[in-house]
Amino acid sequence: MPELADIQNEFLRQEIADYIERPDERARILASFVKASAPMQTIAAALIEGKNKVVDQLTREALEAGTSALEVMDDGLISAMAIVGIKFRENFIFVPEVLSCARAMKAGMAHIEPILSASGIEPIAKVIMGTVKGDLHDIGKNLCIMMLRGAGFEVIDLGVDTSPDRFLEAVETHEAPLLGMSALLTTTMPNMGRTIEAFIDADLRDKVKIMVGGAPVTQDFADEMGADGYGKDAVACVALAKKLVGAAA
């Protein structure tokens, strides 16, 4: 069983000690960092602090030194975002801080994505993502997309203000088994239900798993609308996506 003292980076040790309270999450995060090399832990610490320029530089240097793109992504970036996600869920940090960390992750991913794309690794599954009709908010959706891509999904981003027809068309065109809808406004949330109804009307509901999320969305509302799952935040979205397509967590 890994211990906190097994992690070299002092900042990471302090973050885990201060913010990761649930035993299962602490065990998982400890396990991911214990196996991470010192440079990967440094990248993770910089990401958690939102230092995008440092992450950019360290990622580049790690890749040049021969570290694999997958290792940098998993041990440096994704592991760090897991801590960020939990801090956000528990209200230790809020959206500005998450955006800052996401900006740092993007800086690292900018070096990693071209390498992964060229490597021909098969994605876990295709996911269609979009904000519902009438809603122009996309921060939460974009965070989910970033985390889904990092976790190995191929994401087709339909952007904001997405009509039920566009969701339908995208699922059919890309033969995607998974669809994610986001809404930030209580006034636009009902459009999630309308979209699900459109899939029923088109006789496509059985072909796609539908997950929903967004600040005002709850599990009860997701159930009421007939969604297959609800994710409270980007970390939960990835876990839900894996569960819905039957992938290993």
Binding site: K133, G134, L136, D138, V160, D161, L185, T187, T188
Partner: peptide
């Protein structure tokens, strides 16, 4: 501004 129709709210194009 995206003025929308009868069944949707007008919104600012914040993008």
């Amino acid at each position: 501004i995206q003025w929308e129709q009868k069944d949707n709210w007008p919104t600012v194009r914040m993008r």
